[in-house]
Nucleic acid binder design. Structure first.
Length: 347
DNA sequence: TCCACATGGTAAA
DNA sequence: TTACCCTGTGGAC
């Protein structure tokens, strides 16, 4: 599934292209027919993401909650493009951080990542940006790293025919969004939404960064559960998935098996700040860029091949980029955990 | 063409 | 822990 960063990006697409619009809601597949009938014809009034959950508000205080799970995906079509606001996501964090230093560094680094990317995929970006209102394009936002424009040619007619198993279709006069394969898709009242959010750990893009940091540290330190599991626990911190989990632990040179209660608060603060940084880069670029300091060549390789993209994720059996020890793979709570037994030894 | 596998989560055992 | 949900994809045949 899209980890937290892409859910935020999807929410922004809705905020930009659907909020304020009257929306025709249907369920081409039929499995959300009742919910669709409740929402059909209402105006969307808000769109927000918390961790991996997304909430769309409609007139009459009705909310659509969507969780994509592993397979879920949104497809946007119509007059939908990426915009400057979306691409400046990293800067927003800089404004909300009191101390500023880490966030500024994050924003600067995100800028560097974007610059590197635009060098490499400049044609792609500019073709996307140049698509004005009359032209129509199709933007897939599912697996964030594959986020791409799909066949313009197939979009002569609008709206396009639903492709595959479309659970929900949201249609305005100028844009359409198709949802397929979600883990959760339901209509809630405000209390229902609040109950879901209350069960979630802090999200750096939702909560005040300082308060979020304190909540995170406190929740980790009161558990003896290994930190490798706590980072995946959405009630401890929301938005981290299997890729970010492995990469954050490596970046901290932290043993995934270390109990949360054994970790110094200062180390956990650093861990949280690194997540804040990585999430900012992810929202900024639409990709899980977890290796800093890539030059253009490195960036090109990272785009070409996933194995060149991360420190440890999906690199089992390959030599660690730092110490050449073979990256290990183990199953933790049913998920694949990648780590370097040497760099991440002890604590 | 077929069969795992996937950036999740839940419920049952 | 295990099964299951649900869809699309990529690699093995």
């Amino acid at each position: 599934m899209p980890e937290g960063h892409s859910v935020h990006r999807i929410a922004r697409q809705f905020a930009r292209h659907f909020v304020g619009e009257r929306v025709l809601v249907s369920s081409p597949q039929g499995r959300f027919a009742d919910g669709a009938a409740l929402l059909d014809g209402r105006t969307m009034s808000d769109a927000k993401a918390v961790g991996k959950q997304m909430f769309l508000e409609f007139d009459g205080a009705l909310w659509l909650r969507v969780h994509l799970g592993i397979y879920g995906a949104w497809d946007f079509a119509g007059s939908v493009t990426q915009d400057a606001t979306q691409r400046s996501a990293g800067g927003r964090m800089g404004q909300t951080n009191q101390r500023g230093t880490e966030a500024d560094a994050a924003a600067a680094s995100a800028d560097a990542a974007r610059d590197a990317r635009s060098t490499v995929v400049g044609e792609h970006e500019s073709s996307l940006a140049s698509i004005g209102a009359p032209r129509r394009t199709r933007l897939r936002m599912a697996e964030a790293e594959k986020e791409s424009v799909l066949d313009d040619a197939a979009l002569e007619g609008f709206p396009p025919e639903p492709i595959g198993q479309v659970r929900v279709r949201l249609l305005t006069e100028r844009a359409v969004a198709d949802l397929r394969g979600p883990t959760a898709c339901e209509v809630l009242d405000p209390a229902g939404v609040q109950a879901v959010i209350d069960a979630l750990g802090p999200d750096p893009l939702v909560d005040d960064p300082r308060a979020g940091e304190e909540r995170f540290v406190e929740r980790v330190r009161r558990r003896r559960t290994p930190i490798g599991l706590l980072l995946m626990d959405q009630s401890v911190v929301s938005g981290i998935g299997n890729v970010y989990r492995a990469e954050i632990l490596f970046r901290a040179r932290l043993d995934p098996h270390a109990p949360g209660s054994s970790l110094p608060a200062e180390l956990l603060r650093d861990l949280w700040r690194d997540w804040v940084y990585l999430l900012g880069v992810g929202v900024e670029t639409g990709q899980m860029l977890t290796m800093d300091g890539l030059d253009e060549q490195g960036y090109r390789a990272a785009l070409r091949n996933r194995a060149d993209r991360h420190w440890v994720y999906k690199r089992e059996g390959l030599p660690c980029r730092i110490c050449r020890t073979n990256i290990a793979l183990e199953i933790a709570a049913g998920r694949k955990l990648y780590w370097c037994p040497s760099c991440q030894e002890g604590r």
